[in-house]
Simulated scan of single mutants.
Amino acid sequence: MSTWVVITAAGSGTRLGANAPKALVEVSGRTLLGLALERTLDLADLSGVVVTCPAGSEDMFANVVDKELPRMGVPRQVGLHFVAGGASRQASVKAGLDKVVSEGGEPADVVLIHDAARALAPTDLMDRLVEAVVEGALAVIPGLAVTDTIKQVAVDEHGVETVVATPDRRFLRVAQTPQAFLLGPLWDAHAAAADRGSTEETAATDDASLFEGVAVIPGSPLAFKVTTPEDLTNLTTALAQVSDPA
């Protein structure tokens, strides 16, 4: 088996208050996309990486990456491909998968679906996900145990919320990316659910939602998602610790 990676990077960055695409927002002189690629390119048996971008910005993204990676000492070991994303994350992933197939991806290859917003997800997490698929899992995701008490609520016509259930947190996990799949079944699942991807309101929020019987392995605290300015602050702190663990 060889491995492909699709990185979704088509977000606008509005909630970050950025005047640039979210994946190109910089932290300590590094873009979110550059940080994610740095860790991705260390994967063994990597055949290629597809990055989904805001439509019309593919060349800009390629130019940013071409300048950033060598400057930070990260070699371009494999081909990087930049394609336009779709109307939803689900549609963007489908566009990325189509590019993988067109570039020679085989149904039995492993494909990781990742988000540039989880910029510090470590290579060892990716290695463990790939290993789980190689060992027979059709789909596998990383998950963190939930430590807070979670309440399920109902909302009435006036917007008033009422608690209706308290799920047992022993059986709850916070899903992260990357998520790993066999390429053929994932492409088939996206093709079958393509109509859902026309808007974010109906789209699957992650790729594992399109499967039954998804395996879970322990996630990583570093694979947190950057969504708000506070998350950027946390990323700056985490990046400093990763760069200088002492």
Score class of each variant (00 low, 15 high):
residue 1 M to W: 00
residue 3 T to I: 07
residue 9 A to W: 01
residue 9 A to F: 06
residue 10 A to D: 15
residue 13 G to A: 00
residue 14 T to D: 09
residue 16 L to M: 01
residue 20 A to Q: 15
residue 26 E to A: 13
residue 33 L to C: 03
residue 44 A to G: 12
residue 44 A to T: 11
residue 45 D to F: 06
residue 45 D to R: 14
residue 50 V to W: 02
residue 51 V to W: 01
residue 58 E to V: 01
residue 62 A to Y: 01
residue 63 N to C: 05
residue 63 N to K: 15
residue 65 V to Q: 00
residue 65 V to M: 03
residue 67 K to P: 00
residue 75 P to Q: 09
residue 75 P to D: 06
residue 76 R to F: 00
residue 81 H to R: 11
residue 83 V to R: 09
residue 84 A to G: 12
residue 86 G to N: 03
residue 87 A to I: 04
residue 88 S to V: 05
residue 88 S to Y: 00
residue 90 Q to H: 11
residue 94 K to I: 00
residue 95 A to Y: 00
residue 99 K to E: 12
residue 100 V to D: 04
residue 105 G to C: 12
residue 108 A to S: 15
residue 110 V to L: 01
residue 114 H to A: 15
residue 119 A to W: 04
residue 120 L to Q: 08
residue 120 L to M: 05
residue 121 A to H: 04
residue 127 D to T: 13
residue 129 L to I: 12
residue 130 V to A: 09
residue 133 V to N: 04
residue 133 V to D: 12
residue 135 E to W: 08
residue 137 A to C: 10
residue 140 V to Q: 07
residue 144 L to Y: 02
residue 148 D to A: 14
residue 150 I to S: 02
residue 153 V to M: 13
residue 155 V to N: 10
residue 155 V to R: 13
residue 158 H to R: 14
residue 160 V to M: 07
residue 161 E to R: 15
residue 162 T to W: 07
residue 178 P to W: 06
residue 178 P to V: 04
residue 181 F to I: 10
residue 182 L to F: 08
residue 184 G to C: 03
residue 185 P to W: 11
residue 186 L to F: 06
residue 186 L to W: 08
residue 187 W to K: 15
residue 187 W to N: 08
residue 188 D to S: 12
residue 189 A to P: 05
residue 193 A to P: 07
residue 195 D to V: 13
residue 199 T to I: 10
residue 199 T to M: 10
residue 203 A to S: 15
residue 206 D to M: 09
residue 207 D to C: 14
residue 207 D to Y: 08
residue 213 G to L: 03
residue 220 S to R: 03
residue 220 S to I: 01
residue 222 L to A: 03
residue 223 A to V: 05
residue 224 F to K: 02
residue 225 K to Y: 03
residue 226 V to F: 02
residue 227 T to W: 01
residue 228 T to N: 08
residue 233 T to A: 06
residue 240 A to F: 04
residue 242 V to Q: 01
residue 242 V to I: 01
residue 243 S to Q: 08
residue 246 A to W: 07
